[in-house]
């Protein structure tokens, strides 16, 4: 019988109070017996090849991990923006439209345009991942760097000739980097550092009801 927390919980052996400890135990057991577990489900699924992973892995981390080679400047981005983005987002990016948000504006506002995001990697990622709508994935890495540069330049974050590439994008200090709570990524799962209440609300935990 595999070690199955759901099953044990159903049987009433554990209350939620112990669930965190229990998850830890499950993780430890899972790590210790990874090879034994794999043998249990023989020939279900298959190993992914490096080519298959590369073809689908578009993840970009705030550290810059995942950013492809390539580069672009705001000058180059202006033309791409005009032909691929302006139709929905407006001529300068400050307008927005009925189906698309504005992209340039107050970068310190908490619900501002994408240049108010805490990481330039997220801006690069979203353009690469999701734009232009209905033609996603058709921009080359150079073009994504260039459009990123254009939006950052228009928002006053970089200069017109600054080159955006895999090194400079993650190094950019975004104006609203500290506009997010908790601001340190490593604190996000730590509910104690988040002001309690599972992050749902600000302030301290209320006393539990009895």
């Amino acid at each position: 019988m595999p070690f199955d927390p759901g099953r044990l919980r159903q049987m009433g052996a554990f209350t939620m109070r112990f669930s965190n400890l229990f998850v830890l135990a499950v993780v430890l057991v899972a790590c210790a017996s990874a090879s034994a577990q794999m043998a249990k489900y023989d020939n279900v699924g298959r190993t992914a090849t490096p080519e298959e992973i590369q073809a689908r892995d578009i993840t970009i981390l705030p550290s810059g991990k995942g950013l492809p080679p390539g580069k672009g400047t705001a000058k180059e981005g202006a033309l791409i923006y005009a032909t691929r983005c302006a139709y929905c987002h407006g001529a300068t990016g400050k307008e927005g439209g009925p189906l698309a948000p504005k992209l340039v504006g107050d970068t310190t506002y908490e619900r501002g345009p994408m240049t108010s995001w805490p990481f330039a990697t997220s801006v690069w990622d979203y353009i690469n991942r999701a734009m232009p709508r209905y033609q996603e994935g058709t921009l080359t890495p150079d073009q994504v760097y260039a459009v990123t540069a254009f939006l950052l330049y228009r928002s006053g974050i970089i200069k017109e000739n600054d080159v955006m590439d895999a090194k400079s994008v993650p190094e950019l200090q975004m104006p609203n980097r500290n506009g997010w709570l908790p601001s340190r990524l490593e604190d996000i799962p730590n509910l104690k550092k988040r002001g309690g209440r599972n992050g749902q609300y600000p302030g301290p935990d209320p006393p539990a009801a009895h």
Partner: peptide, 22 residues
């Protein structure tokens, strides 16, 4: 669902960035 990538950091993609209560 078509891809799960395990990492040592959140990726912080678009959905995390537009809708946060204040």
């Amino acid at each position: 669902l078509s891809r799960l990538e395990l990492a040592d950091s959140p990726a912080i993609t678009e959905r995390e960035l537009y809708y946060n209560t204040t």
